[in-house]
Design a protein around this nucleic acid. Sequence first.
DNA 1: CTGAAAGCGCTTACAG
DNA 2: CTGAAAGCGCTTACAG
Lengths: 339, 339
Amino acid sequence: MRKPPANAPRPLTIMDVARAADVSKSTVSLVLQGSPLISEQTSARVRKAAARLGYVYNRRAADLRRKSGNAIGVVINDLMNPFFAEVLVGIERKLTAAGYITLMSNTNESADLQEKVLRSMREHHVAGIILCPVLDTPPRLVKQVRSWGIPLLVLVRSLGMGGYDYAGSDNERGTYLATEYLVARGHPRVGFLGGQTGVVFDDRLRGYRQALKKHGLAEDAALIRIAKPSRQGGHDALLDLLKAAPPATAAVCYNDIVALGALAALGERGLIAGRDFSIIGFDGILDTAYSNPPLSTVDIRPGGLGEAAASLLLERLQHPSSGRLSYVAEPSLLLRQST
Amino acid sequence: MRKPPANAPRPLTIMDVARAADVSKSTVSLVLQGSPLISEQTSARVRKAAARLGYVYNRRAADLRRKSGNAIGVVINDLMNPFFAEVLVGIERKLTAAGYITLMSNTNESADLQEKVLRSMREHHVAGIILCPVLDTPPRLVKQVRSWGIPLLVLVRSLGMGGYDYAGSDNERGTYLATEYLVARGHPRVGFLGGQTGVVFDDRLRGYRQALKKHGLAEDAALIRIAKPSRQGGHDALLDLLKAAPPATAAVCYNDIVALGALAALGERGLIAGRDFSIIGFDGILDTAYSNPPLSTVDIRPGGLGEAAASLLLERLQHPSSGRLSYVAEPSLLLRQST
DNA sequence: CTGAAAGCGCTTACAG
DNA sequence: CTGAAAGCGCTTACAG
């Protein structure tokens, strides 16, 4: 099957532009880079010729020669959770605005996949990586990526003792605030719903415990319902919590999707959130504004977190050897009808 | 600030491997490509040397020379809508499994951004593009991208008269089924909520109208509430619909997030979906299984749609000049408590 | 301010 | 089965 010649023109190179503008290819290259070394006249002539011919810059060739690149790898553990989708949108928005391009991958909590995509990104010579690691990622991963010479920003889930750039939120303080609020509203028995493992879980559970302690309330293991951090997990956990005696009348949730699942379980039982039982989520995803009823939550502004993460990494690219960078979102209570 | 030499080793090339294995660099290259031209012995020796040295393949250099690449551009109009997030996850899963890498961008319905990222992807020499175009994208965009020599798959929103690869769903049939179902359940006055423009909107509205007509019901403009295809749009539209007289008792929604917003509005009015008013969504996003109450919807399996889209594009890469490829998801009713 | 030359790290005919 | 050479499309010293 021969292609019609018109459909397969040899792609234009700077040599073609050089000929058309009657200069050398070095000059074209300099013009394309906006170098001040070239006179305004020459520059304009070259630019015009390039436009006329329909020349397309070959970033690959340039990157190879320059040993640089403008692609950033973003690897997310669970994009099905709207929280991460919103974070990703924030990251991508910032990256694109700064002239970078986003190489994205969803690992779905698989360590194997994570390793695979990280390797792939390395081969592609990404300029930097933003990683929200799968659960149980060993802290040495940080050192490994660093040994590759690729700047890394760890997102949300911290890995070991620090020594790396990080963007996340103050999880302990978030659940502390949420719990304290519910206690102050007169709930003596407040449950904790969902989540099972990982630093984020540990911190959020700790904040809950601290608040109970601070307000002189005994902790009751029956009120802490470990469950998958999903809608279904939240749904099932709430149903379990309802069996506790004496009954709980409110619950702090590991995150918003768990809280949404809990809302569904309440509805299933004919209970109305905010009247019969109080629920508070964590993250501040968009969905919470129009759930039934609208969900109170600990807002850490997912989109802002994503943008901050991207900014930090870009900052790191500018200053490869400055001190550790970090962003910790300050949680704030977003009170709606579910409490 | 001098870097310690150990931290900045000159990156290894096939030349280093060649020297270590005592062969020429062509041989190394062939081994790396798994060529059958090389003896098992030599091949093993080279592979061992590469591993020992910690050699990393430079895909960029290879791609430049080979004029190929394994990056696919995916541009989505609204990643904040879980439907598209789920589609993206499906696409990425398939692409990664096939050894490709995903260059992703969210245009947020901005034509300017769309143009910018498309240009950027072109410079990066992506092997193909999956595009869910922003509203009002002119059909000539298809021709333009094709003139770049980059295989394009149009996602969800068709553009003009065809002549391109496409993955989407049978929107007209979807709303037809939904409307018919509600009518059969004894709702003489069924509303249509949300959406404002675009082919998808037109088709879904048409399906609704067809079903009314088919079942001898008059169409009432007061029951069709145009609104932004968002939770808030659905919320506001339902509140409007409630004012209609005689009252509607059920509504087909443009998509699931509109339906979720409608559910919130119902709750706000003290109404219970499925008892006082029936709501049916469209898409089949995960959220619907645990909304309050769980939402009936027209399921087009977003994840499956994403995978199909990726498969089609990969197929196209194998066969550049075969006939037009397309996938149209067959909608099925997923009945839950909201109806 | 501009041009000739070398080189980024690969692949691919072409000999042998 | 293996090696020497040219080339992918750029950038970057280096002369002039």
